[in-house]
């Protein structure tokens, strides 16, 4: 509460406090800064890559454990040397985070070539094994070119309304995604055909960009399902 006040302070009632601080820190006039409360910093961290978020732990003592309460995970392999290091990061992240913090949004992007679907499957495993995630998750995005087997486990996520899959291949044929309202599929391959996948999920269109690769290719499939 007190911190909220400091952050929301206006120039007139904090002039003295600030000039004192300036004197103390030897700051120049233009270096006046706004101190953001933890809650707001945490919300900003929800928009950055998980790696950057964890790195904020060394900013100062107050920020040391901010990242463990992140409500959004943005995993992206772009800033990692290779997939092994990326996997290691995700393992450590899951191990170190506060398991009681509710998570609403999980984004996994793997642009590097993958040998198998283990990475994606292990992330889905973690999501569906952790009550603080599977009870509250609303949006999931997976971008990875691999064969994924754990997608049906997502039926556990009763609050999951948005699903975005890119380049995913799956041989699963039985999906039950009752809460899904929005779906975005880009260059995915479904053994069962999108028709079954979409009908099981009672899915409505989310994005206009559809580029399906269907085993028994039906070009007008989308209009059929969404009309």
């Amino acid at each position: 509460m007190n911190r909220e006040k400091i952050c929301g302070r206006n120039s007139s009632n904090s002039t003295r406090e600030e000039s004192e601080k300036k004197l103390r820190d030897g700051e120049k006039e233009e270096d006046r800064f706004t101190v953001l409360p933890d809650e707001i910093i945490l919300r900003i961290l929800s928009f950055v890559d998980a790696k950057i978020a964890v790195q904020t732990s060394v900013l100062n003592k107050r920020c040391r454990n901010l990242w463990v309460s992140l409500p959004v995970f943005n995993f992206d392999d772009s800033s990692f040397e290779d997939v092994m290091v990326f996997e290691d990061f995700i393992d450590n992240f899951f191990y170190g985070r506060d398991a009681s913090t509710n998570v609403f949004d999980v984004n996994l992007e793997c642009h590097d070539e993958l040998e198998d679907g283990d990475l994606v499957d292990s992330v889905i495993d973690h999501v569906t094994d952790t009550p603080s995630i599977f009870n509250t998750i609303e949006a999931l995005k997976i971008l990875a070119e691999c064969v994924v087997t754990n997608l049906p486990q997502l039926s556990l996520c009763k609050s999951l309304t948005s699903l975005k899959l890119c380049y995913i291949v799956t041989e699963n044929t039985n999906f039950n995604l009752p809460s899904i309202k929005h779906i975005y599929l880009q260059d995915c391959k479904f053994e069962c055909g999108e028709e079954n996948f979409l009908q099981h999920g009672k899915i409505k269109s989310w994005c206009t960009k559809y580029n399906f690769i269907v085993k028994n290719d039906k070009r007008n499939l989308i209009e059929d399902v969404f009309s």
């Binding site: 101190v35 950057i52 900013l59």
Partner: peptide, 20 residues
């Protein structure tokens, strides 16, 4: 702004004094 910036930059940006 803070994406891919050094810890020092982020510290400056948030006006955080390093107390470690």
């Amino acid at each position: 702004v803070i994406q891919n910036k050094s810890v020092e930059f982020v510290r400056d940006f948030f006006g955080i004094v390093n107390d470690f």
